[in-house]
Design a protein around this nucleic acid. Sequence first.
DNA 1: CCATTTCTGTCGGCCAGCCGACAATCAGCG
DNA 2: CGCTGATTGTCGGCTGGCCGACAGAAATGG
Lengths: 240, 240
Amino acid sequence: MQPEQFERFSDFMARLSAHDRDDLLHIAAQRNAAKGELIFQAGSPGNNVYFLESGRVKIYHLSLTGKEILLWFCVPGEVFGLAEACHSGGGRQVYAETCESSRVLSVRQEDFKTYLAAHPAAALLVNDVLACRLRSLGNVIQSLVASDVNERVAQLLVRLAANHGRRVPNGDVYLDIRLTHQEMANMIGTTRQSVTSALNALRRLGVLDFDDRHRLYIHSERLLDKTALHGAAATKRHTA
Amino acid sequence: MQPEQFERFSDFMARLSAHDRDDLLHIAAQRNAAKGELIFQAGSPGNNVYFLESGRVKIYHLSLTGKEILLWFCVPGEVFGLAEACHSGGGRQVYAETCESSRVLSVRQEDFKTYLAAHPAAALLVNDVLACRLRSLGNVIQSLVASDVNERVAQLLVRLAANHGRRVPNGDVYLDIRLTHQEMANMIGTTRQSVTSALNALRRLGVLDFDDRHRLYIHSERLLDKTALHGAAATKRHTA
DNA sequence: CCATTTCTGTCGGCCAGCCGACAATCAGCG
DNA sequence: CGCTGATTGTCGGCTGGCCGACAGAAATGG
């Protein structure tokens, strides 16, 4: 399985036809947001759909104990805030926060529904995006339930490579996204410390490497090899 | 939060207009399936959408180690196999298996897309269903990451009550779905034994009860009270 | 440029919950 | 109606991984 073939969150805007895109832009309002700003938060009414023009936005739950549960990162061109806007009842359940200074478009829910009813191709595209995310969350659940921490870290890297990976000259995949170990831990339900040790174990196995700034480079073939994953889990701390 | 207000997987067929429903039935093929039959399985091409007429169908992942990870149960009127049919690439990732003798309608993917393009209201309804499930899976992930086993069991019961609960005369909510402890464990990533003890702990707390055939009756107010949940977790095994 | 904050790395103690084991009970079926 | 397999209930030992703690390295922002 190459990263390129892995399920990828659709670049919504790019896949719209020029005409449909123009019509969408026509009903959208633009807004700039500084780093760390909340676009929306749990509890608020979900009466907008958003499209990321530039920057990066993270979507997360907040548990009762204040723990942040990271569901995914939006990259430019993607739509977010979709689930709450499509389903009539209830408000937001998640938080959307900019990771860096970003520019977003917002469309009011009713306008969006009217738009979709008038643009069948766009409606099918929304289906595609939702379906894609649904499958992705299903995989996350499978990972949480059936794998130990080391495997979960490896699987997270595979997912990140699929969505944010860039192939560099020597064949490695460079992860074009800045993540702290804490954030990774928040994505796979473990602790900062466990992520640190899992990453170092994987590096010792030669499956990946990181430079002085902790940027990740993945030797994709090996990481994607399931047996290598099991090897990583098995030889965990027994390697000198 | 009353169970009735909790996010409920939409009864797709019932929410279609009579006209849209007729058109859908027109392109659907009917099929009967015995108990334990697979409607589709992971790996197969996802070129059909299904609608459950009668019976019960469970949707689950299978981990590499053969562990069954239960995502949800379909009840009559609901649509399933939607995610893979909506998203063009890749085959099925999950299994759909009848829990009892059932009758399902199937529609070919291309026909369904054509249908949706011609019936905007149905397309929006599909969006709604997908969005609803997306939120539901998000909640499951939150539960898996942030809660211990006792809380997860309690939260599962809340979800089940929302989808399969029926209020009985004395005010309790009766769970109209037959689940083994093993199946519950498969839904929340724990073991059979832990589910058993968690359920018994909840019963001792008076939050629920079950009859001689292990049918569950929930005293909804108390279960839905968060503080009660924390109490359940805290007093776990210390109660005589 | 230094000061402050954030992040990585590592260790050891501790415990929730997994696992195996076994008994009792229940459901389905010939 | 008794047999057989499935399910529930309970116990103890073992361990993966959480948690707190602390040091060093690296960003960040005056």
